[in-house]
Simulated assay, not measured.
Amino acid sequence: MKAWLLNDFGLDNLQPGETPTPTPKPGELLVKVGAVSLNFRDKAIVDGIYEPASVPKPLIPVSDAAGTVVAIGEGVTRFKVGDRVNSHLYSTWIDGAPLPDAPAHCVGMPLPGGLAEFMIIHETSAVAAPGNMTDEEASTLPIAALTAWYSLVDYADIKAGQTVLVQGTGGVSVFAVQIAKALGARVIATSSNDENLAKIAALGADALINYRKTPAWDTEALNLTDGLGADVVLDVAGGDGINQSVQATKAGGKIAQIGFLGGQTAALDLMPLIFRQTTIRGIAVGTRTSFERMNAFLNDHVIRPVIDTVYSFDQAREAYEHLTRGAFGKIVIKID
């Protein structure tokens, strides 16, 4: 089968090639991949800054895929040939509390990913793709949508009338705005780009902050909430900016620490954290059961993924380059 293979770190070392089509073992599905979508994790793996010692070479990268089951292994009962399915990043995290060894079973690293004509997905981790979405749309769900959903619903338990602050206009943030609005929350969105802020407002964001024009965006967030702060902040930046997230969160509020675009380490000012009694939780996507509940919610509220650009299979490197430049919503690669 055709596949993109990461032979060493660096985008130049991501090369098209041929590799044997896998055969499903007991409990496994062979999926003909229709489309994949890119996340910052995929770029970090290629760049060698995401657990480099754990990356097998060559690696078929990309965790988020949607496609059709074309063969099943012995004992499979949850799916049949012809079903459309999504991959699930943490393939062994089905329900309940996070698993200590979950990273060792991630699709797209160290397990082979979806940037190929076919991929293996275990039936216990596969999720039925929404029937009202194309493969391109469904491929955006496994990390970006589920991270937003798990942060807002499973962690923060957001209710109608509460306030959510979302950073940036990437995949997770765009889904967070759509989901939060469907939950009846008020949304504050931040970005350095006025054009993207206008787009996020069109999706329902109630208040906008350009953090380049307003570096003290945390103070502005307090102004927009009558001095109280947001009930939950989705922090995709990381780095020392976590201190502004603490200031922008209400007393007793929550921060979902999702990303590290601004750095993987932070000098955290403990006094505001303690006095505001803020809860910070690292969010690493979510469970398969949460994924299934999310898909039903997206269907019921007619929420469609926002896709910036769809690239062809041959344009995989161009898709990575676009991700590096930034995108509004998701970058998708069509496989089939």
Rank of each mutant, 00 (worst) to 15 (best):
I49W: 00
N13E: 11
A207K: 11
R84N: 12
L268F: 13
S290Y: 05
D157H: 14
V81G: 08
A138T: 12
R186I: 05
S37Y: 03
V306F: 05
R317V: 00
A248G: 09
A201P: 00
A296G: 15
M1W: 06
T23Y: 02
T287W: 03
H301P: 00
I209E: 08
L5Y: 03
D42S: 12
D269A: 15
I335M: 09
D240L: 13
V177R: 01
L115P: 03
I255R: 04
G48C: 03
A185R: 12
E321Y: 03
I255M: 06
G82P: 07
N299C: 08
I242D: 01
V62I: 15
I72C: 13
A251Q: 12
G114T: 10
T309S: 14
Y155E: 12
L234W: 04
A160K: 15
N86W: 06
V174W: 08
M271T: 13
L268I: 15
A128R: 14
S151T: 05
L183C: 13
L14C: 02
E51M: 11
A176T: 12
K25F: 04
D218P: 03
H105R: 10
A189W: 00
I307L: 13
N86T: 13
A3V: 12
E51T: 11
H105P: 08
K43D: 00
N299D: 15
P272Q: 06
A35M: 09
W149F: 14
D83K: 01
T219L: 10
A71N: 14
F291P: 07
T124I: 14
M294W: 06
A176V: 10
P24Q: 05
Y50R: 00
T23N: 14
K80G: 12
P22I: 03
V236C: 04
Q244C: 11
I45S: 00
G229Q: 04
P98Q: 08
E318R: 02
